[in-house]
């Protein structure tokens, strides 16, 4: 059996419609929204600011602290239990590791930059949408960054490489999900995870297609960041 046509009739390397907006939370130091299909991520940045508990302080550099959260009503009829869990804690950590390589917090010893990510509506690809939104929010906060970060979920459904899986594809029994985060200017990868099985040749193809997809996301990020200051 082969996967002839995607469930939502997209081309195999086509992403869902995207939109982005920067500066949505005026009280925060930086904020952004990123929507891809039915997945929506809001990210706010606070700081650099005083870090407590004190034992977490690092006198060499500022630290990044990410909190990822899916809202209880965000999913597919199943209510997500509110508050942190094992899944959200892990995803917070991988997002933090995906964003840290572009950030320079050396000028902020003992301080913290807090990133809060909320997902009011989800349809797979949440960590990627979260990274994309958080990168914009960090830039909006005026922090020193060598690049932005754009992320997309690549994957396999049966014999096809697909980009930006929705929940139906993500949960397909014969498939694989590969979230990839890329620094768009240098093409370096900051996040690469995989859930499922894939052949080495297909993995290479998936990653190279994900790189191209991230370039498209980068254009959306760039436009949103520039629009924030042009409309002022």
């Amino acid at each position: 059996m082969t996967y002839h046509e995607r469930f939502d009739k997209r081309a195999f390397d086509e992403m869902r419609p995207m939109s982005a907006k920067v500066g949505i939370v005026p009280r925060a130091d930086g904020s952004a929204m990123f929507q891809i299909g039915k997945t929506i991520a809001y990210a706010t940045v606070y700081g650099p600011r005083d870090l407590h508990p004190k034992f977490m302080q690092n006198p060499m550099t500022g630290i990044l602290r990410v909190n990822y959260n899916m809202m209880p009503f965000s999913g597919h009829g199943e209510r997500v239990r509110p508050g942190g869990g094992r899944r959200s804690k892990e995803i917070s950590m991988v997002i933090q590791n995906a964003l840290l390589p572009v950030l320079n917090l050396k000028d902020y010893p003992n301080a913290v930059v807090d990133v809060f990510i909320e997902l009011p509506q989800t349809d797979a690809g949440t960590r990627c949408a979260a990274i994309t939104a958080a990168a914009m929010a960090l830039a909006d906060a005026g922090l020193e960054m060598k690049d932005l970060v754009a992320a997309v979920a690549a994957g396999r459904v049966e014999d096809k490489i697909v980009m930006d899986l929705n929940y139906l594809e993500d949960s397909h029994e014969d498939g694989c999900d590969i979230p990839v985060a890329v620094m768009p200017s240098s093409g370096k990868i900051t996040l690469l995870q995989m859930d499922g099985e894939i052949s080495p040749a297909m993995l290479k193809e998936a990653i190279s297609k994900a790189r191209d997809a991230c370039k498209k996301i980068y254009e959306v990020q760039k436009q949103a960041l520039k629009a924030r200051f042009l409309q002022l």
Binding site: A139, L148, K222
Partner: peptide, 8 residues
């Protein structure tokens, strides 16, 4: 011009 981080 307004530029974003990483832009040449």
């Amino acid at each position: 011009e307004i530029v974003v981080p990483g832009e040449p």
